[in-house]
Design a protein around this nucleic acid. Structure first.
Lengths: 115, 115
DNA sequence: GGCCCGGTTTCGCGGTCAGCGTAGGACCGC
DNA sequence: GCGGTCCTACGCTGACCGCGAAACCGGGCC
């Protein structure tokens, strides 16, 4: 299914960020905000730790059940989660694209926002 | 993964509708609103017709790529789609549970809204 | 330097399911 | 009845979910 979202012949269309990426980012952000570890949340959600890591980084697609379990483990309502994902999509896709590369996914990003 | 969202020992908790169900419902509603057929949208999204049918009915989980393709085929922005899914979740999960069930998920609902 | 330690990522492997082609209803007009 | 349109049920094969085990990455401590 590599050609599903293939580029039209007319022009190289920049496709939006994949949903799984957004989902992962939101999940990770929420977890960090709560000062919790992968092991903790993974155990609470009854999924394996490595798998949760992959989901958070957008490498693997979480099924509906897993997603619900992780949200529950984070004490997060699904509706709130959806608004969060949408918000992240909007703010990420329409930034002022000023100088400064917008998203350099540094592995060691220490994002400590208000909890 | 059948035990991921298993019921707690305290009581049989009614878990929220699965995300894939909501996604499918929104997709189908949108399609019907546009008076389009499965064949049409499936072709536009470069997926098979039966598969799109399954996704719309919540029987199969659509990957991020497929979802993006179908949304694009429907001329639907991902952000709008997300708000729609959330809305459907909220209106379906939080009825006043008065007598008169507001949303009876009939499979053959002939919903003809403003096109 | 070496050595452990909490936290995360990568690697390989089954079992399951995505995604498809084909066949089969259900319903219309002719 | 026959053809057409639209959708769903059935089986299959290759891809990927989800996992255990091991490697990696600071960082503290001796």
């Amino acid at each position: 299914m590599s050609e599903v979202a293939h580029l039209g012949p007319g022009g190289p269309r920049r496709h939006q960020p994949l949903l799984r990426t957004l989902v992962g980012e939101v999940l990770r952000r929420r977890r960090i905000e709560q000062r919790r570890t992968l092991a903790d949340v993974a155990r609470a959600a009854r999924v394996s730790l490595p798998y949760l890591s992959e989901v958070e980084r957008g490498r693997k697609e979480a099924s509906s059940e897993v997603l619900a379990a992780v949200c529950a483990a984070l004490g997060l309502d699904l509706a709130d989660f959806l608004t969060d994902v949408r918000l992240r999509l909007v703010t990420q896709v329409a930034p002022a694209h000023r100088h400064q590369s917008p998203v350099a996914r540094r592995p060691g990003d220490a994002l400590l926002l208000a909890a």
